[in-house]
Protein backbone atom coordinates (compact mmCIF):
# COMPACT_ATOMS: atom_id res chain seq x y z
CA UNK A 1 0.00 0.00 0.00
CA UNK A 2 1.18 3.49 -0.82
CA UNK A 3 1.73 5.63 2.28
CA UNK A 4 -1.03 7.97 3.46
CA UNK A 5 -0.29 11.61 4.19
CA UNK A 6 -0.12 10.73 7.89
CA UNK A 7 2.31 7.87 7.25
CA UNK A 8 4.56 10.14 5.19
CA UNK A 9 4.65 12.52 8.16
CA UNK A 10 5.28 9.64 10.58
CA UNK A 11 8.21 8.33 8.53
CA UNK A 12 9.80 11.80 8.34
CA UNK A 13 9.33 12.16 12.10
CA UNK A 14 11.54 9.10 12.63
CA UNK A 15 14.42 11.21 11.28
CA UNK A 16 14.05 13.82 14.03
CA UNK A 17 16.81 13.83 16.63
CA UNK A 18 16.89 15.22 20.15
CA UNK A 19 17.86 18.89 20.06
CA UNK A 20 17.04 19.48 16.38
CA UNK A 21 15.88 22.86 15.03
CA UNK A 22 13.44 22.01 12.23
CA UNK A 23 11.63 23.95 9.50
CA UNK A 24 8.47 22.30 8.20
CA UNK A 25 6.94 23.40 4.91
CA UNK A 26 3.25 23.76 4.15
CA UNK A 27 1.11 20.64 3.55
CA UNK A 28 2.32 17.15 4.48
CA UNK A 29 5.50 18.52 6.15
CA UNK A 30 3.33 20.46 8.62
CA UNK A 31 1.83 17.14 9.80
CA UNK A 32 5.28 15.99 10.99
CA UNK A 33 4.75 18.15 14.09
CA UNK A 34 2.03 15.71 15.19
CA UNK A 35 4.46 12.77 15.32
CA UNK A 36 7.50 14.09 17.19
CA UNK A 37 8.76 11.03 19.10
CA UNK A 38 8.21 10.96 22.87
CA UNK A 39 11.16 12.01 24.96
CA UNK A 40 12.96 14.20 22.43
CA UNK A 41 13.07 17.98 22.28
CA UNK A 42 12.63 19.65 18.90
CA UNK A 43 12.22 23.37 18.15
CA UNK A 44 10.15 24.28 15.12
CA UNK A 45 11.27 27.28 13.06
CA UNK A 46 8.68 29.27 11.14
CA UNK A 47 10.36 31.53 8.57
CA UNK A 48 8.10 34.52 9.25
CA UNK A 49 10.08 35.04 12.46
CA UNK A 50 9.39 32.41 15.12
CA UNK A 51 11.65 29.78 16.65
CA UNK A 52 9.66 27.54 18.97
CA UNK A 53 6.29 27.22 17.27
CA UNK A 54 3.60 25.58 19.39
CA UNK A 55 0.16 24.17 18.71
CA UNK A 56 -2.88 26.09 17.50
CA UNK A 57 -4.33 28.50 20.08
CA UNK A 58 -7.75 28.32 21.69
CA UNK A 59 -10.43 30.94 21.05
CA UNK A 60 -9.23 32.55 24.31
CA UNK A 61 -5.51 32.67 23.46
CA UNK A 62 -5.74 33.49 19.73
CA UNK A 63 -3.46 36.42 18.79
CA UNK A 64 -3.44 38.19 15.40
CA UNK A 65 0.26 39.02 15.95
CA UNK A 66 1.27 35.37 16.23
CA UNK A 67 1.08 33.34 13.02
CA UNK A 68 3.13 30.75 11.16
CA UNK A 69 4.48 30.83 7.60
CA UNK A 70 1.14 29.44 6.36
CA UNK A 71 -0.49 32.50 7.97
CA UNK A 72 -2.31 30.32 10.50
CA UNK A 73 -2.67 31.48 14.07
CA UNK A 74 -0.32 29.50 16.34
CA UNK A 75 1.23 29.67 19.81
CA UNK A 76 4.84 29.88 20.99
CA UNK A 77 6.39 27.31 23.34
CA UNK A 78 8.45 28.14 26.44
CA UNK A 79 11.92 29.06 25.19
CA UNK A 80 10.64 30.48 21.92
CA UNK A 81 12.00 33.64 20.29
CA UNK A 82 10.71 36.17 17.75
CA UNK A 83 12.82 37.99 15.17
CA UNK A 84 12.78 39.78 11.82
CA UNK A 85 12.58 38.08 8.42
CA UNK A 86 16.24 38.98 7.77
CA UNK A 87 17.29 37.22 10.99
CA UNK A 88 15.05 34.27 10.13
CA UNK A 89 16.71 33.75 6.77
CA UNK A 90 20.15 34.25 8.28
CA UNK A 91 19.34 31.11 10.28
CA UNK A 92 18.16 29.31 7.15
CA UNK A 93 20.77 30.54 4.65
CA UNK A 94 23.54 30.23 7.23
CA UNK A 95 22.85 26.52 7.66
CA UNK A 96 21.75 26.71 11.29
CA UNK A 97 18.53 24.74 10.80
CA UNK A 98 19.16 21.01 11.37
CA UNK A 99 16.38 19.61 9.21
CA UNK A 100 14.11 21.09 6.55
CA UNK A 101 11.06 19.22 5.23
CA UNK A 102 9.24 20.43 2.14
CA UNK A 103 7.09 19.27 -0.77
CA UNK A 104 7.88 19.18 -4.50
CA UNK A 105 6.36 18.62 -7.94
CA UNK A 106 9.53 17.00 -9.32
CA UNK A 107 12.99 15.97 -8.16
CA UNK A 108 15.79 14.73 -10.38
CA UNK A 109 18.79 12.41 -10.12
CA UNK A 110 21.13 15.41 -9.74
CA UNK A 111 19.22 16.53 -6.66
CA UNK A 112 17.49 19.48 -8.34
CA UNK A 113 13.97 20.32 -7.21
CA UNK A 114 10.96 21.97 -8.90
CA UNK A 115 8.22 23.02 -6.51
CA UNK A 116 6.94 26.53 -7.22
CA UNK A 117 5.90 27.11 -10.80
CA UNK A 118 3.94 25.29 -13.50
CA UNK A 119 4.14 27.23 -16.79
CA UNK A 120 0.69 28.13 -18.05
CA UNK A 121 -0.77 27.93 -14.58
CA UNK A 122 -1.02 30.85 -12.21
CA UNK A 123 2.28 31.69 -10.55
CA UNK A 124 1.89 32.53 -6.89
CA UNK A 125 5.53 32.87 -5.95
CA UNK A 126 8.26 30.88 -4.29
CA UNK A 127 7.89 32.32 -0.79
CA UNK A 128 10.84 31.02 1.22
CA UNK A 129 11.30 27.73 -0.66
CA UNK A 130 14.32 28.81 -2.75
CA UNK A 131 16.11 30.07 0.36
CA UNK A 132 15.30 26.89 2.29
CA UNK A 133 16.62 24.50 -0.37
CA UNK A 134 19.74 26.61 -0.95
CA UNK A 135 20.51 27.04 2.73
CA UNK A 136 19.82 23.69 4.32
CA UNK A 137 22.22 20.77 4.15
CA UNK A 138 19.74 18.29 5.58
CA UNK A 139 16.52 18.35 3.56
CA UNK A 140 13.82 15.71 3.20
CA UNK A 141 11.45 16.21 0.29
CA UNK A 142 8.01 14.61 0.69
CA UNK A 143 6.07 14.06 -2.52
CA UNK A 144 4.05 11.65 -4.63
CA UNK A 145 6.18 9.15 -6.55
CA UNK A 146 4.08 9.47 -9.71
CA UNK A 147 1.07 11.43 -10.93
CA UNK A 148 -2.39 9.92 -11.25
CA UNK A 149 -1.58 8.61 -14.73
CA UNK A 150 1.50 6.85 -13.39
CA UNK A 151 4.00 9.35 -14.83
CA UNK A 152 7.10 9.48 -12.63
CA UNK A 153 7.96 12.64 -10.71
CA UNK A 154 11.48 11.34 -10.06
CA UNK A 155 13.22 12.31 -13.27
CA UNK A 156 16.59 12.27 -15.06
CA UNK A 157 16.18 16.06 -15.26
CA UNK A 158 13.41 18.28 -13.85
CA UNK A 159 11.11 19.55 -16.59
CA UNK A 160 9.50 22.35 -14.58
CA UNK A 161 11.36 25.56 -13.62
CA UNK A 162 13.70 24.84 -10.72
CA UNK A 163 13.42 25.91 -7.10
CA UNK A 164 16.99 24.81 -6.45
CA UNK A 165 19.84 23.19 -8.35
CA UNK A 166 21.58 20.07 -7.02
CA UNK A 167 20.56 20.57 -3.39
CA UNK A 168 18.32 17.62 -2.44
CA UNK A 169 19.80 14.49 -0.89
CA UNK A 170 16.78 12.63 0.50
CA UNK A 171 13.29 12.03 -0.91
CA UNK A 172 10.34 10.31 0.74
CA UNK A 173 7.47 9.42 -1.57
CA UNK A 174 4.28 7.47 -0.97
CA UNK A 175 6.16 4.43 -2.30
CA UNK A 176 9.79 4.72 -1.22
CA UNK A 177 12.52 6.43 0.80
CA UNK A 178 15.53 7.30 -1.34
CA UNK A 179 18.89 8.99 -1.15
CA UNK A 180 20.25 11.03 -4.06
CA UNK A 181 24.01 10.83 -4.64
CA UNK A 182 26.46 10.43 -7.50
CA UNK A 183 23.79 11.33 -10.06
CA UNK A 184 21.27 8.64 -9.10
CA UNK A 185 18.42 7.78 -6.75
CA UNK A 186 19.39 5.05 -4.28
CA UNK A 187 16.48 3.02 -2.91
CA UNK A 188 16.72 2.77 0.88
CA UNK A 189 13.25 1.58 1.98
CA UNK A 190 9.91 0.74 0.43
CA UNK A 191 6.41 1.38 1.74
CA UNK A 192 4.87 -1.70 3.39
CA UNK A 193 3.47 -4.02 0.72
CA UNK A 194 4.93 -2.04 -2.20
CA UNK A 195 7.14 -4.09 -4.51
CA UNK A 196 10.58 -3.08 -5.76
CA UNK A 197 9.23 -3.70 -9.27
CA UNK A 198 6.52 -1.05 -8.84
CA UNK A 199 9.08 1.47 -7.58
CA UNK A 200 11.42 0.70 -10.49
CA UNK A 201 8.54 1.04 -12.96
CA UNK A 202 7.52 4.43 -11.55
CA UNK A 203 11.02 5.93 -11.33
CA UNK A 204 12.12 7.62 -14.56
CA UNK A 205 15.47 8.78 -13.21
CA UNK A 206 18.42 6.44 -12.66
CA UNK A 207 17.61 4.20 -9.69
CA UNK A 208 20.12 2.05 -7.82
CA UNK A 209 18.42 -0.90 -6.11
CA UNK A 210 20.37 -2.84 -3.49
CA UNK A 211 19.90 -6.58 -3.08
CA UNK A 212 17.73 -6.19 0.00
CA UNK A 213 15.24 -3.30 0.31
CA UNK A 214 13.61 -3.30 3.76
CA UNK A 215 10.02 -2.21 4.30
CA UNK A 216 9.41 0.92 6.37
CA UNK A 217 8.50 0.23 9.98
CA UNK A 218 5.82 2.27 11.74
Amino acid sequence: MALSREQLAQRVAQELKDGFYVNLGIGIPTLVANYIPEGIDVMLQSENGLLGMGEFPTEQTIDADLINAGKQTVTAVDGASFFSSAESFAMIRGGHVDLTVLGAFEVDEQGSIASWMIPGKLIKGMGGAMDLVAGADNIIVTMMHADKKGNSKLLPKCELPLTGFGCIKRVLTDLAFMEIKDGAFHLLERAPGVSVEEIVAKTAGKLIVPEHVPEMIF
Binding site: E47, S84, S85, A86, S88, F89, I92, R93, I123, G125, M126, G127, G128, A129, M130, D131, G135
Partner: peptide
Protein backbone atom coordinates in the same frame (compact mmCIF):
# COMPACT_ATOMS: atom_id res chain seq x y z
CA UNK B 1 8.90 40.82 -9.69
CA UNK B 2 8.83 37.63 -7.63
CA UNK B 3 11.75 37.47 -5.24
CA UNK B 4 12.66 34.66 -2.83
CA UNK B 5 11.60 35.64 0.66
CA UNK B 6 15.04 35.48 2.26
CA UNK B 7 16.61 37.34 -0.65
CA UNK B 8 13.90 40.00 -0.39
CA UNK B 9 14.57 40.42 3.34
CA UNK B 10 18.32 40.65 2.76
CA UNK B 11 17.95 43.09 -0.18
CA UNK B 12 16.10 45.44 2.16
CA UNK B 13 18.50 44.87 5.06
Amino acid sequence: ILTPQGTLAEKIR
